[in-house]
Nucleic acid binder design. Sequence first.
DNA 1: ATGAGTGTACTAAGATAAATAATACACTTA
DNA 2: TAAGTGTATTATTTATCTTAGTACACTCAT
Lengths: 123, 123
Amino acid sequence: MIILDYQDRRPIYEQVVEKIQLLIVRGVLAPNSQLPSVRKLAMELSINPNTIQRAYAELEQQGFIYPVKGRGNFVSPDVELIQRQKELYFRDLKKVIGLCRKLGITKEELLEKAASFYEEDDV
Amino acid sequence: MIILDYQDRRPIYEQVVEKIQLLIVRGVLAPNSQLPSVRKLAMELSINPNTIQRAYAELEQQGFIYPVKGRGNFVSPDVELIQRQKELYFRDLKKVIGLCRKLGITKEELLEKAASFYEEDDV
DNA sequence: ATGAGTGTACTAAGATAAATAATACACTTA
DNA sequence: TAAGTGTATTATTTATCTTAGTACACTCAT
C-alpha cells in the first residue's frame, strides 16, 4: 500500500501523510472506506505504531480522514479535499517556478519543460 | 546580503547554501569575486561561524566556490554551474508536476498556472 | 617581523525533533 | 468474553543541527 523512502530526508510520518493523501485524492481509497489500523500499518511498514498514530492525527486534522471510536479510521467524504490539495501543490509549483525564473530560465523554456514533464510522468 | 527565514524548517546552513547559489548564478556575485569571510558572515547573520563553515564546505563541494588559504573563499568561474543548477530545479519541477498530474490536474490548467506564476513572481 | 584577518580542524556541549518502547484504557464487534 | 479498534501517556533512544571554545597555518599590509 505504501512504500517508504529512507533516502527522503523528511520524517517518516510526513511521508505516510503524503502517500495516503495521494491515495485518497486519486480515489484509490474511496470515501468512507476504512484505513488500515494503526497497529497493522505499523507492522506492515516495520515502524512504530506511534509514528502511524502521528500521521493519522495529521490526516484527521487536515480533514482527510475521520476516526470512529473502537472501529477505526475512515476516509472523509469531504468534496473540498481535492481543491485544497490542489492549492497546496500550486504553492509548491509557484516556489519552484520562482527559483527557475531567478535562475534566468525563460518562460518559453519553462513551459516547454513543464509540458514534457507532464507527459513523461510515470504513473 | 542574506536574510534567514526562521519559519523555514530546513537547517540554517542549507538556507545559506541556497541563497549564495542564487547570488552566484544570478551574477550578483561575479566569478572570482570574494565571498564574505566565515567569521564576518556569521556575525552579520548572528549565527555561529561553524554553521557558515559548513555552508561554505557544501558550496565548495558542489563547485560553486573555491578557497584560497589565508585569503578567503571565491566564486568559481565554472560555466557549468548554471546548467547544473537548472537541472536540479527541473528535477524539483518534475516532482511537483507529477503530483499535480496524479491529482487529476489537466495539462492545460497546469500550463496556464505555470505561465501566470512565472509572470506574477515577485523579484 | 608583526599582527590582523583569512581558512580549516577539532572536541565538547546543548537543543530540538523524530522515532521507538512499553503501557494503559475505553470502545466495538463477532 | 476476547480480539481488535482508537487514543493517551511517559520515558528513552537516536540523529541532526547549532553553538562554544580553541588551535594552527597561511596571507598580506604595515
